[in-house]
Design a protein around this nucleic acid. Sequence first.
DNA 1: CGAAATCTTGAGTATAATCAAAAACGGTGG
DNA 2: CCACCGTTTTTGATTATACTCAAGATTTCG
Lengths: 238, 238
Amino acid sequence: MTILNFSPLVQNISRRMELTQAEHGGLHALRLGLRLLPHKANILLANDRPTKCCMIIKGYAYRGKDVASGRQIMSFHMAGDLPDLQSLHLEAMDHDLMTIGETLVGFIPHLDILSLIAKHSRLGAYFWRETLIDAAIFREWIINVGGRSGYARISHLLCEQMARMMAKGLAKEFGAPLFLSQTNIAQATGLSPVHVNRIMGAMRNANLVNTKDGRLTILDWRGLVAAGDFDPAYLRLN
Amino acid sequence: MTILNFSPLVQNISRRMELTQAEHGGLHALRLGLRLLPHKANILLANDRPTKCCMIIKGYAYRGKDVASGRQIMSFHMAGDLPDLQSLHLEAMDHDLMTIGETLVGFIPHLDILSLIAKHSRLGAYFWRETLIDAAIFREWIINVGGRSGYARISHLLCEQMARMMAKGLAKEFGAPLFLSQTNIAQATGLSPVHVNRIMGAMRNANLVNTKDGRLTILDWRGLVAAGDFDPAYLRLN
DNA sequence: CGAAATCTTGAGTATAATCAAAAACGGTGG
DNA sequence: CCACCGTTTTTGATTATACTCAAGATTTCG
């Protein structure tokens, strides 16, 4: 028994497909190195050439890149995500991967994953599909920053994160706190932190969200879905 | 000999790897249906569940989705591109795929591609990698619409399309005309058509681009690269 | 308790959207 | 070949959304 059996990765795969004994054994054989990283730590930087894939086991991370106007966030990640699966086939990173809060990260050698995939093609298809869902989320983010107002952008972002947390069992109910700071939201939506703050004030006045003891929570799920024009189909949950 | 041998797909794969006799035979065996579509035709619509993958053979296409404020374009595609490879593993389309100008499209059954991949894992890795590069381009578009000024956004977009056309041998020199209308550019950058028009006027004054006889051409590649903060690494050309 | 990060508020400014209308272009049919 | 239609591009004037600068309040954490 490796730690992998208890990891959110196996849980996530099991949510999608019944694993055979052999497939389970293959996953079991993956070598997994662990690192506990503090808030705002680099997991990977642009131009790195990783030889391992990383998995978020506990905590959060984001993909981001510095631009002239500051930092753009391209995705958020939580327990069970493999936020650099693309490194299996793309040598150099084109962005950074950083933690949000204290985060436990597992590292699996590329070679282990590639040989697992070679033996169990269904798992290969699973991993490919995961990267395709990532791409679908990127497309939705292009729509979000390119086509929606500030108010709708933030609403949509909160909906997406909450929907993903619910699907992974990381949040039991809509009242569960989100992990995003206003700075995170600003960098993800292409808005200034000041403007995000003002919009979130308006969202609080509209009783869509709350920030009790510093934690962002959703009060009115349906209202937020409407405000953000959120349709979760692109996430392919279940 | 099927038409596939003359298609840009085989050319693209050959640019990346030396094909073995068997791999070439496998590609050769793919069934390919052809359709010649007019300007602004639907290749696929959101919620469609395609059983074939399509390949642009001649002409152009884009992925787009309607939003409250109009239409957002998420990517442009040209000869050799497989703009719905994701349909291999994601059942329903989450966006539309439409032509720009008269466009020749080839359709290959999913089953043919899946069995090809099963036999020739190197080709499977190639296709997976292509979808990962798509995802890298989506990420760059998030940066573009989220983090750059209107002037830089348009410059970056023009650089990307020109770089891709050059890499595919679809443009011999920087003077070659691009296929984008100002409306296309507006929908891809999240700007209004009017504002795009004004910015492009400024770009013409700066001698970055020209629009002789209605065709958009690049006059000053280095200037455009600087204006758009363009680094082609994410495209993984060569 | 103090330092650092995050959040909040105000005032002035800039970028880009909207509305409206005209000019140029591209293709079609007489 | 030319008149006509729809599309695309262009220009002007006004408005709105969001940014910047600046400073203070609050929270978090060592």
